[in-house]
Design a protein around this nucleic acid. Structure first.
Length: 313
RNA sequence: GGGGGGUUUCCCGAGCGGUCAAAGGGGUCAGACUGUAAAUCUGAUGGCAAUGCCUUCGCAGGUUCGAAUCCUGCACCCCCCA
């Protein structure tokens, strides 16, 4: 049985990084009388503008945007916080009588909205660090064995090297007394694409790569390096998420003297392509997604209208 | 001109007579992913009619039952002396 969530009847425009989501979304929002909610784990951060390709005020048109610039670069965040914040947005926007249009390329957040999250304990970083340190004292498969003892079903799904997920599974068991495998069952069931409005802008791979390359060059031209310097000058250190964002991580390494500027630009392009690839793996795996093939130059009006038409068939 | 080091599979780089289609890393391809997700983890990666066959370690020869590994010559690159 498919599950219903607050986002079940919302609209979504997603797709790999640099696929032109913002432009299409602004056109679509005007046609369906929607407000936009960002579906992007990095646009949440204030002061990270260039490297996240955050839609600038000028690109947002007359449309209200939500969940952009809501946390500081030193703050940590989580899917659960995101989903909670997004559901609040949904209720408020609906109360104003408008449609809700999610726009962005963070597939985990997408899945969380579409299928809901299980009620679990929040992250306990002290616990995680302790477990991680303890694991390092033991043989490589130790964490996996620990989990297999309390939650064999979860252990069977996780690779012995998947430290992060093994630790979270143990954390859930420790805090709630329940095996994570028992709590997280709703996530496997999706809804058929034609019952949803989840649209994935889908470019031929080579063209997407060209768009990525051009965008990365533009980011450097617009001052990505200065933006990173400003972030590093802040009294609070960057959060682990912010620090590892594509574009930021490489520039930090460059400022550290690890790569030349030229190498850095190339690395950012390469890592952005890899990100796009992983995003597409997600979209292929989610039955809710409908792919919108893009040909030639992106014409936002044309594709916004095409998407509206797709929902009227 | 003399002496020394080097040339390895897409890239970097180990290998220094058999167990080598060749470690490791990168890239690429594919997959996973529920409180870090632009993160993290996994698998594949010379070719093929594929429990085997064929091609590959700068080029051409040679030694050997057997060579990426030893010898000879040639080409290119680097370093030192002149």
């Amino acid at each position: 049985m498919a599950n219903f969530t607050a986002a079940t009847d919302c609209w979504f425009i997603t797709g790999a990084t640099a696929s032109g989501k913002t432009a299409v979304a602004v056109e679509l929002a005007q046609r369906i009388d929607a407000e936009i909610v960002s579906l992007d784990s990095m646009a949440l951060y204030r002061h990270m503008d260039i490297g996240t390709a955050k839609p600038r005020p000028g690109e947002r048109g007359p449309i209200a945007h939500h969940l952009i610039d809501v946390i500081e670069p030193h703050e940590e965040y989580s899917v659960a916080q995101y989903v909670a914040a997004a559901e609040k947005c949904i209720h408020e926007i609906k109360a104003r009588g408008r449609e809700v249009l999610f726009v962005g390329g963070t597939p985990l957040y997408l899945k969380g909205l579409l299928r809901g999250l299980f009620e679990g304990p929040p992250a306990d970083w002290e616990f995680r660090h302790r477990l991680r340190d303890e694991a390092q004292q033991h043989e490589p498969g130790w964490l996996h064995e620990q989990l297999a003892a309390v939650d064999p079903k979860a252990a069977a799904r996780l690779h012995a090297n998947d430290t992060r997920r093994l630790i979270r599974a143990l954390e859930v068991y420790e805090k709630s007394g329940m095996p994570i495998s028992q709590l997280q069952q709703q996530f496997d069931r999706g809804r058929p694409a034609d019952e949803c409005r989840v649209f994935v802008l889908n470019w031929p791979r080579q063209v997407l790569h060209q768009r990525i390359n051009r965008r990365v060059d533009a980011m450097f031209a617009e001052g990505l390096i200065d933006e990173v310097c400003t972030l590093l000058d802040k009294p609070e250190p960057l959060s682990r998420t912010a620090r590892k964002a594509v574009g930021y991580r490489e520039v930090i390494e460059h400022l550290d003297g690890r790569h030349t500027l030229e190498e850095t630009v190339e690395l950012v392009k390469q890592h952005t392509r890899q990100l796009a690839k992983r995003q597409n793996t997600w979209f292929r795996s989610l039955e809710e997604c409908r792919f919108v093939p893009i040909h030639g130059e992106l014409d936002p009006v044309k594709y916004a209208e095409r998407i509206v038409a797709m929902t009227q068939q």
